[in-house]
């Protein structure tokens, strides 16, 4: 049983619909809502926030002429990109070439279906929620491979191969680290993982610190965040795109709408990474005073800010070093963490 009613049920309840019809309508409306929330966030992040943040790190101002704080850039950028000519290079492998830009953002959006965003915003709460989120997130790399081989461009191909290598090397530590949380929580269900973290850990001078797993096991949190950076392909692990090495990596050949989709996908992916991290380690939407959804938003934006910070300040690893860290470092550490957690939980319980 989930602790709260999931969003579709709430909606169909509100509309007074029941049975199959209620399920369908509620599901559609809910999905529409959640997808739009995320798209709006990415719209802010992509053309505007990213520029502003990078500029702030580099002592610049960035967009400020168009609309207040340059906010209208979001509109102009989006419309302009959508209205550009869509170039289909000769020799691309259709339909893979056309499908890939859809696979990338939609897989990431799919992941949000099981994320509890606070205030009852959660599309579904299956028992295997966490596994679903990971599964959905890693479909994106399938999309990247598709872009890579279908583009008929060597830089794209190299980028795609790098993305696959990265995905394999870092997905395992990511999941294993998440598994240690699951051992703590005793469930894969997202809402339960969140609920477990609501209990107080200790009280210091009247302030109660909850059992967020980031506090319980900071080591696992660090591992998870690092693996997550690699998973979403940001510095120092941004080797699939690697602008100075392989032009624009897997997205080199994409223009116009397809480019927008890929770009969107990247950002939604970052947010999904942040959302999973928040759910697993930071108590999901929990937080004092403000409503849950606001906290949830703050947390995933914090992760986004972190990725941009890393992008501005940390050099990129070389691909072999990157894999070495993945296979020799992260993997071993995450297993150690898992075993340790298992022992501790076993002893205590």
């Amino acid at each position: 049983m989930s602790l709260q009613a999931v969003l579709p049920d709430t909606i169909s309840g509100l509309l007074g619909l029941e049975g199959v019809l209620g399920d369908v309508v509620g599901g559609l409306v809910g999905a529409f809502l959640v997808a739009n929330i995320m798209l709006i966030m990415t719209a802010f992040a992509g053309p505007w926030a990213k520029r502003k943040i990078t500029a702030a790190f580099g002592d610049r101002i960035a967009v400020n002429r168009i609309g207040p704080f340059g906010l209208l850039t979001i509109v102009t950028d989006a419309v302009r990109l959508l209205s550009k000519e869509l170039i289909v290079p000769e020799g691309v492998d259709r339909p893979a070439w056309d499908l890939a830009p859809m696979v990338i953002p939609f897989s990431a959006l799919l992941g949000f279906a099981v994320i509890p965003m606070g205030n009852g915003i959660q599309l579904a709460d299956p028992e295997t929620g966490l596994a679903f989120a990971f599964a959905a997130a890693s479909i994106a790399s399938l999309g990247i491979v598709m872009t890579g081989y279908a583009s008929n461009n060597k830089f794209s191909l190299i980028g795609a191969l790098r993305a696959v290598a990265a995905n394999i090397a870092y997905e395992i530590p990511l999941v294993i680290t998440a598994a240690s949380v699951v051992i703590f929580a005793g469930s894969l269900r997202m809402s339960e993982i969140v609920a477990v973290q609501a209990e107080p850990l200790l009280s210091v001078a009247g302030v109660t610190i909850p059992t967020w797993f980031a506090f319980v096991n900071p080591f696992a949190f660090a591992l998870f965040v690092i693996a997550n950076l690699a998973e979403v392909g940001r510095n120092p692990f941004d080797i699939p795109e690697a602008p100075t090495e392989i032009v624009a990596g897997y997205q080199t050949e994409y223009s116009s709408v397809y480019f927008v989709l890929i770009y969107l996908g990247e950002f939604i992916h970052i947010f999904l990474g942040g959302a999973i991290a928040a759910t697993l380690f930071l108590g999901g939407p929990a937080g004092p005073v403000l409503p849950g959804f606001v906290w949830f938003t703050i947390k995933i934006w914090a992760f986004f800010l972190f990725t941009q910070w890393a992008r501005s300040a940390v050099p990129r690893l070389r691909v072999d070093q990157f894999l070495e860290i993945g296979w020799k470092g992260m993997l071993v550490l995450s297993f150690a963490n898992l075993v340790l957690t298992a022992i501790i939980v076993g002893v205590i319980a």
């Binding site: 990078t54 602008p243 100075t244 300040a313």
Partner: peptide
């Protein structure tokens, strides 16, 4: 720029 991969802070500084 070559090692970091983008117009990062160091380039700006």
């Amino acid at each position: 720029l070559d090692v970091y991969g983008d117009f990062t802070a160091i380039f700006m500084y």
